[in-house]
Design a protein around this nucleic acid. Structure first.
Length: 544
RNA sequence: GGCCGCGUACCAAAGUGGUCUAAUGGAGCGGAUUGCAAAUCCGUUGGCGAAAGCCUUCGUCGGUUCGAAUCCGACCGCGGCCUCCA
């Protein structure tokens, strides 16, 4: 059975039917870079990563235009943007007032600098938003690569796969001008604070993605929308495409015949970067040009983002993208498939700094958890459930990673053809085809591992194809330092006092003074180390 | 108020009409191994029973059906979104 996915737009699980089954276009709404990304961010990005890996796997079938199954492998062009334009902290005015997030980040960096908390070798000017964005952007890409986010790895060679919003201001202005020309946008406001708004009433299906109606939005608007800016809007739900503001931290010459400088609205960047990066510059030009509008309601195959993006961000993207690119603007869907992973909880509660259950990826790496374990813990729950991230779960994941690695690294036995290699791939794929049932797929994998004590070359090849989807074994292994006696895991540095105790313990054991050797183990435990004797007479040392 | 999602055994999490006491992992228990540990491997983990077997479980209460964890209704509880957020 070919791949089926839950499409937020239709609220049903439906066959995935790309425009070209050999080349799938996939856009993920990436991070804003005012701070380090946390594990909730990464859960969402990793869910998208697993989807892209599965779609390009030889194990995956998709539905062709003729309704028939098309087997893999296939190419997936996956683009994930980085939002490096500053946005406002205060939403009370629809994001048009308040403080720029980039400025807030600058203050935080300035404080960190003063108290010496910036990482060594980092020297950024807290008053330069571009430097701040570059700093956190680089940190994000580092974390993403360690967690095996394929798009981040690819973007090293092909930077266009992770476009920066500030590099696409020209495209945004062109789209805004096109929207004005087509009657979907208008200029309002007084000189010096003019704004371009998208007219939601000009887009028939506004609200289709989030299940809203314009009436509901109007009545539900409540106190969230300020009076001030509403007066210049034709409809309360009209959203900002561009704002003239000479005082803004990041600003550019304006579109729409507005004289002063300003900055783009929240949603327009994704319209531009998705179309341009996935379809290419020439097609972007053609779509915007005279008579270039596509007859196809969808421009790209898959679009993903966290569930909080459904409204307003993706709703607005659909409206403005369809209005700009589609021949029948009112029925555009922008993407064929809308994919929205749910939020991550941590220790049973919504992650928040005040609850102390807020983790960035690098927090966990620093605690000694290896990237593969973090990755597995973040992907092993169905993407449409609120996963609960726990330390216990992380330990479970760590063990499963070690189990897989042992299986893969012990080498092929010269035994006969495996009875199972073919069936595990089939069972794994069958589960994944059902809206990415990864827990079911992992269950099949575990069952097979149990049944295969002596893997053959065919078994190892099967594991490799499965792992290409999971993306675990390719990740860096935890740092290990060896001394004559000790094997220091979890990135621990060999501490002389520990080495001395290990030596003393070996001597005690040699003298069969087990009372003393056990006491040393307790002493090490009190110091925060867990030890175990491993093959070759060495002692493995881990954090307790 | 509107829209959406969730509730499975000690924990996590599959299962969407019979093959379900219910995959898989963890934890627990028993065993092998170890000086002892750890790790690993094997067995096992609802109740009664030596066993065959019988009884009871999938938020609660009802309903549909020969048959329900699975379909329908109501209720209870949890969560997300409704212009900050992945």
């Amino acid at each position: 059975m070919p791949l089926k996915l839950y499409n937020t737009l239709t609220r049903t699980i439906e066959p995935f039917m790309p425009r070209d089954p050999a080349r799938v276009t996939f856009y993920t709404c990436g991070p804003t870079v005012y701070d380090y990304a946390h594990i909730g961010n990464f859960r969402s990005f990793l869910a998208a990563d697993v989807l892209r890996r599965f779609v390009e796997s030889p194990l995956c079938e998709v539905t062709g235009r003729d309704g028939k199954a098309v087997s893999g492998p296939r190419r997936v062009v996956h683009v994930m943007n980085i939002t490096d334009v500053g946005h406002m902290t205060d939403d009370a005015d629809g994001g048009e007032n308040g403080e720029d997030r980039m400025a807030v980040a600058g203050r935080r960096i300035a404080e960190a600098k003063k108290s010496g908390r910036l990482p060594a070798g980092v020297n950024i000017d807290p008053s330069d938003p571009y430097q701040i964005a570059a700093f956190y952007g680089d940190a994000f890409v580092d974390d993403a690569k360690r967690l095996g986010l394929k798009v981040a790895v690819e973007a090293e060679k092909e930077p266009g796969l992770m476009p920066r919003a500030t590099k696409h201001i020209d495209g945004m202005k062109r789209v805004i001008d096109a929207l004005i020309a087509r009657g979907h946008a208008y200029v309002g406001g007084a000189p010096g604070r003019k704004a371009v708004y998208f007219s939601v009433e000009s887009f028939e299906r506004y609200g289709a993605l989030s299940g809203n109606t314009l009436e509901a939005l109007q009545s539900g608007a409540g106190g969230r929308i300020s009076e001030g800016n509403q007066q210049e809007k034709k409809h309360p739900a009209d959203f900002l495409l561009w704002k003239e503001d000479a005082a803004h931290v990041m600003k550019w010459p304006s579109p729409g015949g507005i004289e002063g400088q300003g900055y783009p609205g929240w949603h327009i960047e994704c319209t531009v970067m998705s179309a341009r990066s996935l379809l290419g510059e020439a097609e972007f030009d053609r779509l915007l040009g005279e008579g270039g509008h596509t007859p196809d309601p969808a421009i790209i195959d898959i679009h993903s983002g966290g569930e909080d993006n459904i409204f307003p961000h993706h709703e607005c993207e659909i409206a403005q993208s369809s209005a700009a690119f589609c021949a029948d603007a009112g029925h555009g869907t922008f993407a064929r498939m809308w994919f929205h992973p749910r939020f991550l909880f941590v220790e049973g509660a919504k992650m928040s700094k005040s609850k102390g259950n807020f983790f960035t990826a690098r927090d966990l790496f620093a605690k000694g958890y290896e990237p593969a374990a973090v990755r597995l813990e973040l992907i092993k729950t169905h993407y449409r459930s609120n996963a609960n991230f726990t330390e216990q779960g992380l330990r479970d994941s760590q063990r499963m990673v070690e189990r897989l690695r042992r299986f893969a690294e012990n080498g092929a036995s010269d035994g006969s053809e495996s009875r199972h290699a073919g069936t595990v791939e089939g069972a794994f794929a069958e589960a994944m085809h059902e809206d990415l049932n990864i827990a079911g797929a992992l269950g099949e994998l575990n069952k097979w591992l149990n049944e295969t004590p002596r893997p053959t070359a065919a078994d190892l090849a099967a594991l490799k194809r499965i792992d290409a989807v999971l993306g675990l074994l390719e990740l860096e292994k935890p740092a290990q330092a060896q001394t004559e006696l000790g094997l220091f895991m979890d990135g621990l540095a060999p501490d002389p006092s520990v080495i001395a105790k290990l030596q003393e313990r070996v001597d005690a054991k040699k003298a069969r003074d087990f009372k003393r050797s056990d006491a040393i183990r307790d002493e090490l435990a009190a110091m925060g180390y867990a030890i175990k004797d491993v093959a070759g007479g060495k002692v493995e040392v881990r954090r307790k």
